[in-house]
Write a protein that binds this DNA or RNA. Structure first.
Lengths: 230, 230
DNA sequence: AGCGCATTAGACATCGGATGACTTTGAGGG
DNA sequence: CCCTCAAAGTCATCCGATGTCTAATGCGCT
């Protein structure tokens, strides 16, 4: 018994999910049954479930049941950025990370994308054009979706897991403001990216993404300067 | 009572830590006392503690007590790679990610490193040379330390958080075997990387890191082919 | 005085029963 | 057919008992 029973139980639950081939949204047996079948007490099982829930692997709904989570295994702040004090520098650094990463991702996407995915991507791009002037969070959510889909199209598992986290972190720890200029540039960039990926032009996709993120970086700095002066 | 008591209790614990100004390694009151003072049952407290432990905010040691964790906030598998079925492809993709990322990191490190850090880096590189032939995990741990330190030297917060996760994931989900050839190449590459960073030669640092990871990728494939034939 | 081993107190681990609160579902009345 | 509401299913919470592990204590030996 080297590891505590609770940890072995979390492993058992993951094993259970895999063996039963459960996916997002599927329901687990109730806690009494599951505890019984794993051979542990209910308290132990509950702690194991709680542990997995806090890692966004499970979702517990009182009165309803315990389910496999949607964004399986990726929690809100997986890289611990919420503990970083200097959020200004963090945002800059995140943009630099994106500048290194996402052009490569776009390139891969242009190589490997399916036609179906291109249709989705065009739909999202269109949605963004439609809500670009709305004030709510919808624009940010769609932007995350846009970049996440491209990451998925790259067929690189690591990128696919990582890009959503990075993009979300930026909107999470820095509510940056958009001006008219940046909106125009964003839409223009998006069109170029979509076109390059659709046409299967990896180099152009890479270049377009590079420009897109560089624009964002530049606009971020400009907005901060404007903000400082006021 | 909108939120479940357990979640409110996790918040209470964090509040408790902040208010008492507890830092890494400090001990919390025992579970009976803490439950009492937070006004919840022991099971509830235990689940809250377990939840925080799985997010690497707390560390529980049986028989000793509950402590504030060191690497606050970064969990073992933050990007959810443990759910990926095709670990072979995952490893390839992780290496590709490193190939994109780490040369840039090495470049930044060469720009921004301090002399003190260079001393540490040389020490780690030396340690690696000494244990390269040992069979245990020490070699992997030192390799993680090596790349993590370079990430720290880059002064990019995002890279600093990300690189350890990526490097660790590779050793976690793929126990790749090393042969004599790769050991020699690894040591050679490490020397070149250290030298370039020490000399403040960003381009050379980038190039050396590129070669290092490309070598690793190549050796990985070779080892797999050898493994398949047996 | 110093060292080492055994004891012991303190702390977490695990179990399972009792009761409460919430969700879902479906039967029955309109 | 729809609405209401009661019942069943499920998680939430507390609690007491017992086991296991760690670290400190203290005793005896040298």
């Amino acid at each position: 018994m080297e590891k505590p029973l609770v940890e072995r139980t979390t492993d058992s639950i993951i094993e259970f999910i895999k063996s039963k081939n459960l996916g997002s949204g599927d329901k687990l047996p109730n806690e009494y049954t599951l505890a019984e079948s794993l051979g542990v007490g209910r308290s132990t099982l509950r702690e194991a479930v709680r542990s997995l829930a806090s890692r966004n692997i499970l979702e517990v709904r009182q009165g309803s049941g315990t389910y496999v989570s949607k964004n399986m295994g990726i929690s809100d702040d997986p890289l611990g950025f919420s503990f970083v004090k200097d959020t200004l520098k963090l945002t800059e650094d995140l943009f630099y990370l994106r500048y290194v990463l996402e052009p490569e991702v776009a390139m891969l996407a242009a190589y490997r994308r399916t036609d179906q995915e291109v249709v989705y991507l065009e739909e999202i791009a269109e949605d963004i054009e439609n809500v670009i002037n709305s004030t709510d969070q919808l624009h940010f959510e769609l932007d995350i979706e846009f970049h996440s889909l491209i990451a998925k199209m790259s067929r690189n598992i690591a990128m696919n897991h990582l890009v959503p986290v990075i993009v979300q972190s930026i909107t999470l720890y820095n509510s940056y403001y958009t001006n008219e200029q940046s909106k125009v540039e964003t839409l223009q960039s998006h069109r170029e990216i979509v076109r390059a990926i659709r046409d299967g032009d990896p180099m152009q996709a890479k270049y377009a993404m590079q420009m897109h993120i560089a624009n964002n970086q530049r606009q971020l700095k400009i907005n901060r300067q404007v903000k400082q002066k006021t």
